[in-house]
Amino acid sequence: MTTLITHPMPVLAAGLALGSRFIPPRLLIAGMLAACLPDLDVVAFKLGIAYADAFGHRGFSHSLLFAAIIGLIGAISHKALGCGPVKAALWLFLATASHSALDALTNGGLGVAWFWPWSERRHFLPWHPIEVSPIGLSRFLSDRGWQVLLSEARWVWLPSLTLAAGGIAIRRGLESRHK
């Protein structure tokens, strides 16, 4: 998995690139939280649920069905999020699914159960440059954790920063043309 520090980064970057007129602040924050939500499945370890189980780590909560459920909750809550139901549903679906996409880019673990409940098969993307994060704070606070953060900075933070800065620059350029 990538770290909880990294999971909201692409969502934040896309929201900043698109701007608050398109992605209202409450929707942006909800998306950032949704991007972290699938990792609540680590509670399964405490409950004795095996990693490879459908309700274990990277199982149900990392599926496209789970992302769709979060999107549906967003559609129902659209007024509180400051936008229409379709925008809320799509943004929260994509934000939640981004979590699984990042995990599928890591070089460890069992992969992501994208198609659960139709298939329990776990998937990785063909390219997986991101160092997988150790699970547990004590393991993370080590040289391995530092390597993970450097890998995430290279493969997620830097591209996210580029996306945000590029989107902001394009929006400002377009706004100055219309003045």
Rank of each mutant, 00 (worst) to 15 (best):
S77W: 12
S20F: 11
G166I: 14
S133V: 03
F93L: 14
A101Y: 11
G19H: 03
H123V: 04
G84A: 07
A80C: 05
S63E: 03
A30Y: 07
M9F: 09
D41H: 05
A14P: 04
G111V: 06
C36N: 14
L16T: 06
G82F: 08
L18G: 10
G48T: 08
L149I: 15
P159Y: 06
I23G: 07
G136K: 12
Y51K: 15
W91N: 03
L12H: 03
G31A: 09
L12D: 00
W114F: 15
L125E: 04
I73D: 02
L102F: 11
E131G: 00
A95C: 04
A75K: 01
A67S: 14
K46V: 11
S151F: 10
H123D: 04
A17G: 04
L27K: 14
A97D: 02
A14Y: 01
R21Q: 13
G108L: 12
A13H: 07
A113H: 01
S119R: 09
A165I: 11
A97P: 09
A35W: 12
L27W: 14
Y51S: 07
D41L: 11
G71F: 12
L65S: 03
W127E: 00
A52Y: 08
L149R: 08
R122L: 07
I69W: 01
S100V: 08
W146S: 08
R26F: 04
A88E: 07
P126H: 02
R121F: 04
D143C: 02
E175S: 12
L158S: 00
A75Q: 02
F140M: 14
G84F: 09
L18T: 08
L163M: 15
I76C: 05
R154F: 10
D39S: 06
A34W: 06
V132T: 14
R139M: 09
A97L: 04
S100D: 04
A30I: 11
D143S: 04
F66N: 00
F93S: 06
E152I: 15
Q147E: 07
S119H: 06
T106S: 07
A17Q: 10
L141E: 04
N107T: 02
W146P: 00
W157A: 15
L64Y: 00
